[in-house]
Simulated assay, not measured.
Amino acid sequence: MTVQDVRAFNRFYTNLIGALDYGRHLYAPYTLTEARVLYELAHSADTDAADLRADLALDAGYLSRILNRFEEAGLIERAPSAKDPRRRRVSLTERGRSAAELLDERARDSVGTLLGGVDPGARPRLAEAMHTIRTILGDPRAGGDGDGRAEVVLRDPHPGDLGWIVQRNAALYAAEYGWNTDYEGLVARIVADYAEDHDPHLERVWIAERAGRPLGCVMCVRDDAPGTARLRLLLVEPEARGLGIGDRLVTAVIDFARGVGYRDLVLWTNDVLSAARRLYRRHGFVLSAEKPHRSFGRDLVGQDWRLDLHTAAE
């Protein structure tokens, strides 16, 4: 690779991004830098000017002028930082959050339009190429050479991911609980039913990924009972446990189920899965029934758990 290769890519990409922003509609009435500051404030629960300056590599005076304009416009408010009284915490007001949400919506629509012209079969390659660039050039959130911590993202399944769900469930439950291939058969049927016939408006699969590697999964599918969704096949890889991935996956299912209008969310598990049961209980699930059974080559106690989505929302 030469310097000219990098410059050619930069010209192509900046022209592409510019083509998405006709007449500065995307960021108006803010500059690109101002829009980025709003984005960072909207995605951070507790930050201050020093954090922003470091994260965005901005000149202190330039950032100060931006924040002063935001405060005058009623977009932010500043208060003493809980982490360090010498610093000033910066947070969005309701008006500022509305502005950030509008910019985010415009950005999603623009990128969605761009991806609409990309062959679905080529999208995994595109995502992998983008991730490779971020990793090699040291983006810490992509698992590069920065601080060594990659961001865990929840995404829709790519081609091959449904097969990964079957393989990892079978392998992990065999290794950790001694379950036989009967369990693999059950998982394969669940995944095949979803792949062959699911309603994308009412059913979803999430893959938790870090640095291009899947680390967990969960499914939300329709149950036989009217108005009821079922959480299925929650899994987190052993090396990723303790990172809050299971909590995020369960939260994603609950938010999705409530958002599309389900009244109840149910699941079936076994009493040996103690960590999962604690997670469900923290999210408000209630044990509704349990029954001993012989499955997967083991004597188990099956449990039914239920979450009233209306009560949980209140």
Rank of each mutant, 00 (worst) to 15 (best):
T311W: 14
Y13A: 15
T33C: 14
L38H: 12
A252G: 10
L202D: 06
Y39G: 05
R210F: 10
S288V: 15
T269S: 13
W179F: 14
A275Q: 15
Q303N: 04
A192E: 11
G74T: 10
L172P: 03
G163I: 01
W305L: 09
R204N: 07
T113K: 00
V90I: 15
I245Y: 01
R210W: 10
V191K: 01
G216D: 01
V205G: 04
A73Q: 12
D156A: 09
L58H: 08
L26W: 05
V253A: 10
K83L: 14
D84W: 08
G178M: 00
E237A: 13
L249Q: 01
R149W: 08
W305R: 01
G259L: 04
A192H: 07
R149V: 14
T14N: 13
Y177W: 13
A142G: 10
V191A: 02
L52C: 08
H201M: 02
L186P: 00
C220Q: 05
V272E: 07
R87D: 13
R123G: 05
V250T: 03
Y280F: 15
R141Y: 08
G302T: 08
F70E: 00
D271P: 13
A252D: 05
H201A: 07
D59N: 13
R281S: 14
D59W: 04
Y183K: 14
Y280E: 09
